[in-house]
């Protein structure tokens, strides 16, 4: 069973002059357990729009998105939010950590929306997660006192703390130097391997894209398989 399947997905937005701008057109993509998928493309090629649709943040103009074989359009707004929280983890280019909260508070934030036992054990789970990304000694540090690499590791811990089936990484190394970026990707893949989660990485860096097992290029709104050297 696939986690996510896109069928002939297109996305367009209205323009002020009455016309429409097509961002994505005819996109087909299937992601299963343990997949490592990379999508490369230039700025403005529609990478972020694709990521939003994959993460159930945005809906396609035409075409169908299936999550665990269920059409996403059948989910209610709150149902989609809960599903996203439970099954999808996001890693952003700018980390998007909550300012003035400690690393621990950032990582336990997704667990605040867990209606089960994990809510009550959130502190212990978040602590273990931070320890697993090598930040057990920085639990109480706010993002302002962490380096870029450390911030991204906190973001990874936060994305994975609810053990999602799908991890969406939007330019995860975009704000990091080459060496730190490499170690962050290693960590991301390692943690994803441990939970058998699928990892979809959107990047413009061919080196990062090359780490995946399936490669795609997004150009002019169309998604096509790519060959990575």
């Amino acid at each position: 069973m696939s986690i996510l399947r896109l069928e002939q997905v297109s996305r367009s937005v209205p323009l002020p002059d009455g016309g429409r701008l097509t961002i994505l057109s005819g996109v087909d993509l299937e992601v299963g357990d343990g997949d490592r998928v990379s999508v490369v493309g230039r700025s403005g090629s529609g990478k972020s729009t694709l990521l939003n649709i994959l993460g159930l943040i945005d809906a396609p103009t035409t075409g169908e998105v299936h999550f665990e074989e269920v059409p996403a359009r059948t989910f209610s707004g709150a149902g989609r939010d809960r599903l996203r929280g439970r099954k999808i983890g996001f890693v952003f280019q700018q980390f998007n950590l909550l300012p003035r909260r400690s690393a621990l508070e950032n990582v336990l934030t997704p667990l605040l929306y867990d209606g089960g036992r994990d809510f009550w054990r959130r502190r212990a789970i978040a602590t273990r997660m931070l320890e697993s990304v090598g930040l057990g000694h920085r639990l109480d540090s706010p993002p302002e006192r962490l380096s870029g690499g450390e911030q991204q590791r906190v973001a990874i811990a936060r994305a994975l703390v609810r053990r999602p089936r799908l991890i969406l990484a939007d330019e995860p190394t975009g704000a990091l130097d080459l060496e730190t970026g490499g170690s962050v990707m290693e960590l991301l893949e390692q943690v994803a391997d441990e939970t058998d989660a699928a990892l979809v990485t959107i990047t413009h860096d061919p080196n990062i894209a090359a780490r995946a097992s399936r490669h795609y290029r997004l150009e002019g709104g169309a998604l096509a398989p790519a060959v990575v050297a």
Binding site: D81, R82, G85, N96, L98, P99
Partner: peptide, 16 residues
């Protein structure tokens, strides 16, 4: 607003 957006990506519903 940005913070609210981040929370929404981690599963916070509109009602919450």
């Amino acid at each position: 607003i940005r913070e609210i957006g981040i929370r929404r990506t981690f599963g916070a519903t509109g009602g919450r």
